[in-house]
Amino acid sequence: MDDWQYKPAGDHGLKHEESFKSLRREVGLLGTITQTAWRLAVRGYLRGYHRLRVDGVEHVPAKPSFVMVANHTSHLDALTLAAALPWPLRRFAFPIAAGDVFFETPAVALFSAMMLNALPMWRKSCGPHAMQQLRDRLLSEPTIYVLFPEGTRSRDGSLGRFKPGLGMIVAESEVPVVPCYLHGAHAACPANRKMPLPLPLHLRIGAPLTFGAVKNERAGWQEIAAKLEAAVSALRDAGQ
């Protein structure tokens, strides 16, 4: 620990509704309480209702920062990936969520910020600036991103193409990226369903990859996306 330094909260000086959407938002005592309550409830729900099984927990790095990526078929995905983390790591987890769904109205943004600890990704207007902010945060403080490189929920349950944007966050860095595959979420709660069915979930966590040697430019980003897509799809096939 360094000498004491005054360092205001990353979202200091922003109005409440703006601070919910801020990529530099930091949680205080109140947020810790609401998020802990939420995590306990989600863990109970996933274990009880979906009989969640997790393989490969040993692949999860012992300390932040790192990134978890997975296939995306359902709103259950981010909850499950965050819940699969060992308890001491969970408060560092930030699901990267679609801004136009999870941060559109103030009430939903409040929920996403205070319960889910989500950070917004604005799909239509996500410039390099936002990716740079995410990268800075990942490299400068203990942070775990949970993100879905397909960019949207797969409507038929199959694995879509990984978008290269993720590469901007991890290229030329030693931050591990942990590939995961979640079985059963498409059957339990597909995109067109509101209430989940009580079907089992099975999460498979793979060995982490790092991309320190991959150039932080378009070709490198595409290479990273392709490698991660292959890793996730290998986990899918290993589970059958």
Partner: peptide, 21 residues
């Protein structure tokens, strides 16, 4: 206290903040 803690960075020390609260 919340305002002070967020302006100084005290809020990151959760045990101390919890005792103040």
């Amino acid at each position: 206290y919340r305002e002070f803690a967020r302006a100084t960075g005290m809020f990151r020390y959760r045990a101390i903040s919890a005792v103040v609260a």
